[in-house]
């Protein structure tokens, strides 16, 4: 399943994050994209370890949950429909969207974006590390007594 995450900044840092996937209703999150991406990346690290993650909204009460169910992640919460995404594809899409935002922040720097860019980048690195393929055993391991 292809998952597409699009981002729009409409009021400074504020804006909309939309998750679209074939066969699933769109998830439209009217909230600060940097904040959502930072938390989504942190969630990747969580659900890659089989744990669920809660993501709060930045400018309104409530939030949503990403729960692992086998190879899928179920998104449920306030003001969003319930949808299921393949775990790996969702992680890839989140990291890709975050990279897009980071590139955008680098290309169009502002005081606000500069301030939060590092936090988003850190979260993205953690997400990347979480999904990085684990190294296969090698001969080198024989040095373990």
């Amino acid at each position: 399943m292809d998952i597409e995450i699009s981002i729009a900044e409409t009021h400074g840092l504020d804006g909309v994050v939309t998750l679209a996937a074939e066969g699933q209703p769109d998830v439209v999150i009217t909230d600060e994209p940097w904040h959502q991406l930072m938390h989504l990346c942190s969630a990747v690290a969580e659900f890659e370890h089989g744990m669920s993650a809660g993501i709060p909204y930045s400018s309104m009460p409530g939030g949503y949950q990403l729960s692992v169910d086998g190879d899928e992640v179920v998104l449920t919460g306030d003001y969003v429909p319930t949808v299921r995404y393949p775990r790996a594809e969702l992680a890839t899409a989140i990291i890709a969207a975050t990279d897009v935002w980071l590139a955008h922040a680098a290309a169009l720097p502002s005081v606000e974006r500069d301030g939060v860019r590092e936090s988003v980048a850190e979260a993205a690195d953690a997400a990347r590390a979480a999904v990085r393929p684990r190294p296969e055993p090698t001969e080198k391991t024989s040095d373990v007594p």
Binding site: T30, Y57, M60, D78, Y79
Partner: peptide, 11 residues
């Protein structure tokens, strides 16, 4: 209130 910035919930 900035009515151009309406969200799903507005507290």
């Amino acid at each position: 209130f900035d009515a151009t910035d309406i969200k799903a919930a507005n507290t």
